[in-house]
Write a protein that binds this DNA or RNA. Structure first.
Length: 155
DNA sequence: GCCAACGTTGGC
DNA sequence: GCCAACGTTGGC
């Protein structure tokens, strides 16, 4: 199967690309996804080695700040079973987990961020890129190979 | 199955 | 902090 590409959002105050770089093995379980469409991408399509744009959302300058890769296939997100956890889901049972995650491994920072504003400036070239679509709220979204290349060329 | 109310996301 | 967009919930 050919390599796929993804864009994954994180609020940098919660977990930034710098945090990912500091993790043991530079790898982190991407927990807390509680959206079925995003879960299905992880469950059905993500493969080890897929490319990831690490996107900072809900911050001063939203945009892509670094590159990462998918480091595992999907497995159950343990935080869904922890009553103390912010992402606890009382409706999910261990024998039938509702929510999954993948491990994400740091690759590198971009020389400078590719901001949302920059992406929008290239909307012609990036037709269909979900992150610049109006009202889009998905935290995990696919990036077409031609868009991946075009965005990297903006670095 | 409809749809109003509500909660969350996330840019600005 | 505002608020538009949109997903989810729950009454009917």
């Amino acid at each position: 199967m050919p390599q796929r590409f993804w864009l994954m959002k994180s609020e940098p105050e919660t977990f930034s690309i710098d945090d990912l770089k500091k993790r043991p093995k530079k790898t982190e379980p991407w927990d807390g996804v509680r959206n079925y469409q995003a879960r299905n991408f992880m469950r059905d399509q993500m493969q080890v080695g897929d490319g990831v744009f690490f996107y900072h959302s809900n911050c001063e300058v939203p945009g892509i700040y670094g590159l990462a890769e998918i480091a595992s296939t999907a497995y159950p997100d343990p935080t869904q079973f922890d009553p103390q956890h912010h992402h606890y889901d009382p409706g999910s049972k261990p024998e039938e987990p509702r929510w999954l995650l993948v491990d994400v491994r740091y690759q590198r920072h971009l020389k400078r961020p590719i901001t949302l504003e920059t992406l929008r400036q290239h909307e012609k070239q990036l037709q269909g890129l979900a992150v610049i679509a109006r009202g889009n709220r998905l935290s995990v979204m696919p990036v077409r190979p031609e868009h991946w290349q075009a965005i990297l060329a903006l670095e």
